[in-house]
């Protein structure tokens, strides 16, 4: 698998470390309560199809990336910097 890092270009997936669903971007605020945090930490949609997920360019520029990828074909549809995603949100 090759991931097109926005900073480094296309690189072999062995340079990256997988973290999981991009839902982890949206960490609940304390006032949302324990149930929201439980859902955030433990529950996953885990779709067979396109999913948005976090990868870390650990053996590269160390950017955290949001990757849209199809879990049935491993086809990668888009790669963005997680920091950009987060700034848009906040």
């Amino acid at each position: 698998m090759r991931i097109n890092c926005p900073l480094c270009g296309a690189r072999d997936s062995r340079e990256f470390h997988y973290r999981g669903s991009a839902k982890l971007i949206d960490r609940p605020l304390p006032e949302q309560g324990r149930a929201a945090m439980f859902d955030y930490v433990y529950i996953r949609d885990n779709p067979a199809g396109v999913t948005r997920e976090l990868w870390h360019h650990r053996n590269g520029c160390r950017a955290w990336l949001v990757v849209a990828r199809d879990t049935t074909s491993h086809k990668i549809l888009s790669v963005e910097l997680a920091a950009d995603r987060g700034r848009v949100r906040s």
Binding site: M1, H17, Y18, A48, T51
Partner: peptide, 13 residues
């Protein structure tokens, strides 16, 4: 392999 997958196959690393 480390990433979510339903493909029943993996990669070279």
């Amino acid at each position: 392999d480390g990433y979510n997958s339903y493909a029943q196959r993996g990669n070279l690393p």
